[in-house]
Amino acid sequence: MKVKELVEKFGLKVAAGQTGLDKEIKGGYCGDLLSEVMGNAGVGCVWLTVQAHQNIVAVAVLREMAAIVITGGSTPAPETVDKANAEGIPVLTYPGSSFELSGRIYAEL
C-alpha cells in the first residue's frame, strides 16, 4: 500500500511531506519513546505516535520510514512541518488513538 492510499482509506490529514506520498508502506510501528522506536521500527514502516515535535522527523529519516501518523488529535509543530517538507517525510494526523488506527491498518497490510 502506498502512503496516499493509506491517507484515503483511513481519512488521514496530510500535514506535511506531500512529496513522499508515493512511498510504499512495508509495515507499521507504534511508540512514543524515541529511542525505543529508533531501535526497533522497521524500514518502510508507518509510525504511529502522539509525539508532534520536530525531533520525530530525524527518527523517521534515519529509519527510512514511509510516513509518520500523529494520533490523538495533535497537530505537528511548525518546525516539524518545515523539517518534514525538507526531507519529504509525510506527516499525517488522525483524531483517534494509536490503538484504534493500528488495528485498522494491521488488518489491511
Binding site: D32, L33, L34, S35, E36, V37, M38, G39, T49, Q51, H53, N55
Partner: peptide, 16 residues
C-alpha cells in the same frame, strides 16, 4: 515528555 530519557540510549549503542 518529548519521548527521550527512557534509559535506552547507551544500551542501544552497545547493542548496535
Amino acid at each position: 515528555e518529548m519521548g527521550f530519557g527512557a534509559g535506552m540510549g547507551l544500551p542501544n549503542m552497545k547493542k548496535n
